[in-house]
Amino acid sequence: MPKVGREKSNRIHKEIARQGIFFKTEIGQHILKNPLIVQNIVEKAALRPTDVVLEIGSGTGNMTMKMLDKAKKVIACEIDSRMVAELQKRVMGTPVQSKLQILVGDVLKINLPFFDLCVANIPYQISSPLVFKLLLHRPIFRCAVLMFQREFAERLVAKAGDKHYCRLSVNTQLLARVDMLMKVGKNNFRPPPKVESNVVRIEPRNPPPPINYKEWDGLTRIAFVRKNKMLSAAFKQTSVTAMMEKNYKLHCSLNNTPLPENFDIKEKINNVLLINNVADLRARTMDIDDFVKVLHAFNKEGFHFV
Rank of each mutant, 00 (worst) to 15 (best):
P192N: 04
L87K: 00
K186I: 10
L103E: 02
P129W: 01
P113K: 08
Q125M: 06
L87F: 02
P35D: 05
I37C: 01
N271H: 12
D280S: 08
N62M: 12
Q29T: 09
C252G: 12
P49G: 05
V4P: 01
R18E: 14
T25W: 06
V184K: 00
D80P: 13
T64W: 03
T220G: 07
K293A: 15
Y213K: 06
F305T: 00
C77N: 03
K186A: 11
G28F: 07
K73H: 15
D264E: 11
L174G: 09
L174C: 12
C77H: 04
F22G: 13
V294W: 10
N276W: 01
N10C: 06
M180E: 14
M286N: 03
R226N: 13
K229C: 00
P258N: 00
R177G: 08
A233P: 00
P210N: 05
F114Q: 10
R142M: 04
T238H: 14
M286W: 05
N277S: 12
L281G: 02
R6G: 15
S98N: 09
K214G: 07
K109F: 03
K66M: 11
N171C: 05
R150S: 14
A160E: 14
N121L: 02
A234T: 15
H13A: 09
V292Q: 13
G20T: 14
D116Q: 07
E154P: 13
T257R: 08
D280P: 03
F305N: 04
E261K: 14
P95N: 12
K3G: 06
P260C: 06
N277E: 08
V74K: 00
T25K: 12
E86F: 13
A297K: 03
D290M: 05
V96M: 11
N277A: 06
L274Y: 14
Y124A: 03
L47I: 13
I41G: 07
Q237L: 04
T172W: 08
V199Y: 01
N187M: 06
Q39I: 02
G302P: 04
A76C: 09
N299K: 06
A71K: 02
L54N: 00
R18F: 15
A242V: 14
V107Q: 01
F189C: 07
L87Q: 08
M180S: 15
G161R: 05
F22W: 13
K186M: 09
L87H: 00
L100C: 11
M65N: 08
F224E: 00
D287C: 10
R226E: 05
A85E: 15
F114D: 11
E301V: 09
F148Y: 11
K229W: 03
M180P: 00
A144R: 07
D162C: 01
I41N: 03
F152E: 07
L87V: 08
R18M: 12
L219S: 04
E196M: 04
M1Y: 10
E203C: 05
V91E: 01
E43S: 08
I41E: 06
L136D: 14
K246C: 09
A297Y: 14
L281E: 05
D290H: 11
K73T: 15
A120R: 04
P123L: 15
R221G: 01
S239F: 12
K236A: 04
V4N: 10
V74R: 02
K194C: 09
T257A: 08
V170C: 02
M67I: 09
M1R: 07
K3S: 05
P260E: 12
A234V: 02
D69L: 14
T25Y: 06
N10S: 13
